[in-house]
Simulated scan of single mutants.
Amino acid sequence: MIRTLLVRGLLVGLLAGLIAGGFAFVFGEPRVDSAIALEEAAAAHHPAGTAEHSHDEEEAPVSRPGQKAGLFLATGLYGLAVGGIFALVFAGLRGRVGPRSDGKLGLAAAGTAFVAVILVPFLKYPANPPAVGDPETINSRTLLYVVMILVGLAATAIGVATARRVTAGPWARGVAAGVAFLVPVIAAWVLLPTVNEVPDGFPATLLWEFRLASLGTQLVFWAAFGVLFAWASDRAARPATVPV
């Protein structure tokens, strides 16, 4: 059964990754191009910056056309990785938590994963386009983002455990799980340092369009993944019909 779920997760993840890649290509790449154009225009006003930028451009291993062409490869590989991990986690959840139906459990698990792994860290540390962010702080920013992912996962586990302890009706369990989830998340949002490295004069519209496109790409991926995984699970659960 685990092998079947793993294959299902890999195939669905690949397809969802390609769908998300299409969204990112249409809505995200134009914002990246605009941000790069701003970065180049700013560097052109500083001779030293121009020389440094030109050197970086020469040293860039992949050109912008190559990056665009490789976008679908990247999102496809992302989908494969996520699909494999999701399938293994799903195998551990079946019959233990959530809905008994594999399809409903798949949808619930995909939605929960989006909230815990994507939305929670995004609301604290949203994605930034090129020309935004200090290269010297990339390690610390990455660490903070990973911490928020761990907080989201831990909060999810706390919420599920709390819901299982509540013996009242579904509404009471839902409220208890929601509160138990939000307490550590809000605490992390308040206690962890804020990162704001947006340079003066950077267009606010472009910044938020890029961030929305980034979040939208993940939303499209997890929505497509959840729906396709649920459909495949329900289809596999149907009894085979023998022609008479």
Rank of each mutant, 00 (worst) to 15 (best):
P203F: 06
G216T: 01
A24P: 10
R235Q: 14
N128P: 02
A188K: 00
E197D: 11
E209S: 04
I138A: 07
L182Y: 03
F23Q: 01
A35L: 12
M148R: 13
Q218C: 00
G106F: 03
T167G: 09
G216F: 00
L150T: 06
V190D: 03
V160G: 05
G216I: 00
A108F: 09
A91H: 11
S54V: 15
L14N: 06
D102I: 07
A230K: 00
G49I: 12
L207N: 00
L10W: 09
T50G: 04
L93R: 10
A24S: 07
D200Y: 12
E136G: 15
L11Q: 03
G169P: 08
E52N: 14
V132Q: 07
R100L: 02
G83H: 01
L206F: 01
P184D: 13
V175D: 07
A109V: 03
F72W: 15
A35H: 10
L14C: 05
S63R: 12
L73F: 03
T112W: 05
A236N: 10
S214D: 05
H53G: 04
V120C: 02
G9V: 05
Y78L: 13
S34L: 12
P135V: 08
V82W: 13
A157E: 06
A237V: 07
A236E: 14
G17M: 00
R173S: 10
A157T: 08
E40M: 13
R94V: 11
M148V: 09
A43R: 11
T50Y: 08
N196K: 06
P239I: 11
G216W: 01
R164G: 01
W231V: 11
L14V: 12
A204I: 10
T75R: 06
P130T: 06
R100P: 00
G106I: 05
P65Y: 09
A154Y: 08
Y125G: 00
V179G: 03
P170A: 04
Q67Y: 11
V146W: 14
N128A: 15
H46E: 15
P99R: 02
S101Q: 13
A176W: 06
I186M: 01
V227F: 00
A44R: 13
G28M: 04
N139T: 15
P135Y: 03
S63Y: 02
L107W: 13
V160R: 04
T142N: 13
P99M: 03
T205I: 14
F181L: 02
D56H: 10
V115M: 06
V120E: 02
V82T: 12
A108T: 12
F114S: 00
G83W: 01
